[in-house]
């Protein structure tokens, strides 16, 4: 139960941060990405606020043998910079640049009853399921262990 409450609190804080920072506004996100236009550097400040605080959390975590509510830390399984990573980042960047929406703000917009975000979220989940259908958890795990 503390585990679920901690996850709920983290999700809520994340969602509030997206609203306060302006990340939930696609026009503002595109204003940041539009370097050649009327550039709005605000999003660099979002990253500038988020990264040091997160880094402090990871630094504190390094002093612990395990997290407070779980048996072990679960760092990302993959560590290679490979074609798959770059291909994925290119496709994500393409989609992000077309609409100005990344996954967090897309979900936060549902909470703001932004009806237009529903199409984006459904398509996004569909895209995720397509990738997962092709490989499945077993294949992904095996390909990591195979290296």
């Amino acid at each position: 139960m503390p585990r679920l409450l901690a996850a709920l609190a983290a999700g809520a804080l994340f969602g509030l941060g997206l609203v306060v920072s302006g990340m939930v506004n696609p026009a503002k996100v595109l204003g940041f990405l539009d370097i050649a236009g009327d550039w709005d550097p605000s999003l660099a400040f979002v990253m500038g606020g988020a990264i040091p605080v997160a880094a402090l959390g990871f630094r504190l975590g390094a002093r612990r043998t395990r997290p407070v509510c779980a048996a072990a830390f679960s760092p990302p399984a993959r560590s290679l910079i490979d074609a798959r990573l770059i291909t994925g980042a290119v496709l994500f960047g393409l989609g992000w640049g077309l609409a100005g929406i990344c996954p967090g703000p897309a979900l936060a917009m549902l909470g703001l009853f932004e009806i237009n975000a529903v199409a984006f979220v459904l398509a996004m989940i569909g895209g995720m399921l397509i990738v997962q259908r092709f490989e499945g958890p077993g294949v992904a795990a095996a390909s990591v262990m195979g290296r």
């Binding site: 996850a7 983290a10 920072s21 009327d38 709005d40 550097p41 979002v46 959390g57």
Partner: peptide, 28 residues
């Protein structure tokens, strides 16, 4: 439309959420 203060504050909240999830559950 430049809003550095709210962007920094919101960003710090996002970073805080990431720190919380890592320290409590060990998840990214």
């Amino acid at each position: 439309s430049f809003t550095p203060a709210s962007a920094l504050l919101g960003g710090a909240m996002i970073g805080g959420a990431a720190a919380l999830l890592w320290l409590m559950l060990g998840r990214i």
